[in-house]
Simulated assay, not measured.
Amino acid sequence: MKKSKIYGIVTCIIILFIAVVFGFSKMKDANSSKASNKTIRVLTYANWNPFEYLKNGKLVGFDVDLIKELSKEAGYKYTIKNASWESMFTQLQQGKADVGISGITITSDRGKTFDFSDPYFVSRQSIVVPQNSTVKSASDLKNSKIAVQTGSTGQEAAKKLFGKDNSKILATQSGVTFQMVMHGQADAAIGDNTNNEKFIENNKGNKLKIVKDDKAFSPEYFGLMFPKGTSYKKSYDKALKKLIADGTYQKIYKKWFGVTPNTKELSKFK
């Protein structure tokens, strides 16, 4: 075979190789661009300071800042809308939204209907009672009227402790539980400790106090909630790991809670 013909074949192979590599690169860039142009529909229930609440008509809070950075890291644009607690679950189940973030506890029961991200926050339930109350633990609430938020893990905890069909467990809207205790309609309220502490801090004249009982209330882990079978869980889990590794998560946490989080607690989730 002549050298010129060999050179010609080699040249064709090189050109073909460059074309394939270039084409693959362009395809990868296109896919990347497509992902970054995807807009994720986020829902929250803005009635839970400091996680999410309305300030001058604008959604603010820990969860709001976190979903912003997570979406940015995952390569997505996003919209975030306020919804009622029940509507948030319904819209996600119907595929009308892509993700919910609102201090949602990861539970096995919810896991039957929704997919959850890796946990991003650890919390516990606690008890709110009048300052002159003699309650020292959850066991002291036997036969008491207990206010809980409808559909919350506080309601689940109360039912577990005092009976599923206990008529003295009074389910109501978020925030109303504290009002019921202040007005004597309930002897105590059970809810997330972070929320309880924030309410008492901002309403010191209401003469309420918190009773903690770590034996009665196990740690709870909050996660992003997705429709079942979502394709977004993987990218948001990866983004969360990155934000924890580079310290962005810790900065957001300290901004809203005033302390640096123990991120090792997140890995204890089972």
Rank of each mutant, 00 (worst) to 15 (best):
V129Q: 02
K238P: 09
Q250D: 12
K228V: 07
N193Q: 09
F114R: 05
V122Q: 10
D109Y: 14
P227S: 08
V42H: 04
N37R: 06
G229K: 13
F226P: 11
I101Q: 12
M182S: 05
T194D: 15
Q149P: 06
D237V: 10
T113F: 14
I40W: 04
Y7H: 04
D214Y: 10
K264F: 01
V211R: 08
S33G: 10
A171Y: 11
V99A: 07
T39M: 14
D98L: 00
D187I: 05
S102N: 01
G247C: 09
F217H: 08
K251D: 11
I13R: 08
G191D: 07
M27Q: 15
N31M: 10
L240I: 13
T177L: 03
F269W: 14
V211P: 04
A97M: 06
K242H: 06
G103D: 02
A245I: 02
T11S: 11
M27R: 11
K136A: 09
K204M: 05
K5D: 12
R124M: 08
M180F: 10
N132L: 05
I15N: 02
F121T: 06
T11K: 10
E69D: 11
Q155W: 12
S133C: 06
D29Q: 13
D63V: 13
P261T: 13
I252G: 05
W48A: 12
L92H: 10
A138F: 03
D63G: 09
L224R: 10
S117Y: 15
